[in-house]
Amino acid sequence: MPAPNELTPPQLNRLIGTPNCPEIDRIACPLLIRRFVDRRARFLFVAPSEVENVADRFDALPFDIDNVFWTYRGTACTFDTMIEEFQLTSPALSIMARIIRSADINRHDLHPACAGLLALSVGLSRQYRDDQAQLEAGMAFYDALYRWARDGQDEGHDWPTATGAAA
């Protein structure tokens, strides 16, 4: 039985955020860490008022909130900060960063793909009340975004020559 001031996993899950608004960096940053920094990284999503306590208890590094190291810097979003600090350089990650930043700061004029990313993020936030389930589901489309940025940008869809039929 946990101490009165201790959080059990079910209690921690109840503190996890709700889908009232999409948090682009809450999926983008874990993807970046899991794919390029530490495959075994775990992520805890808690109410802002609980971040400091949970970070201390689990020896975790908070991200994407005010007054922490891993957060916005000027016009750069948390994803940008992580790319810079982890010294991750690739054309695909640079393209992803522009799309993620554009969606995260609601500047659709910065990259045409950001509206699609925002639409998918809003959809995920409406499908999943549990942040861990949302994260796992979102990893697939962020992986797909990375693959598109890496080697799929030149591919298009020419409807008149496309095949397929619906009955």
Rank of each mutant, 00 (worst) to 15 (best):
G164S: 12
L61V: 07
E155D: 08
A140M: 05
S90Y: 08
N106E: 12
A92M: 09
A97C: 05
L93H: 05
A3G: 06
T75A: 12
N5S: 15
R14C: 09
W148M: 01
D66P: 03
Y128F: 15
H111I: 06
L145R: 04
P19F: 04
L93K: 06
I27V: 14
C77K: 04
A165V: 14
Q11A: 15
G116W: 00
D158W: 11
A113I: 06
A119L: 08
L12W: 07
A166S: 13
E50T: 01
R107M: 06
L118N: 11
R98P: 01
L118E: 10
R35H: 15
F69M: 09
F45H: 11
P62W: 00
R129P: 03
P22H: 02
R26T: 06
N20I: 14
V54L: 13
L44I: 05
D143W: 00
A47H: 15
S90D: 10
E85H: 06
I99K: 02
G156V: 15
N53D: 12
R73W: 11
P30S: 03
Q127N: 08
Q153I: 14
A115R: 07
A149S: 15
F45I: 11
D64P: 03
H108D: 08
Q132R: 13
A92Q: 11
T89K: 13
R39Y: 12
T8K: 12
F45N: 02
D143T: 12
A76M: 09
D64I: 00
P4K: 08
W148I: 11
H108S: 08
I65N: 10
D38F: 10
F69C: 11
M96F: 00
G74E: 08
I24E: 07
T75H: 09
D154K: 15
V122S: 08
I100F: 04
F141A: 05
Y142T: 00
Q132F: 11
R150M: 02
A144V: 08
C29T: 01
D66I: 06
F45S: 09
A144W: 00
M96S: 01
V68H: 11
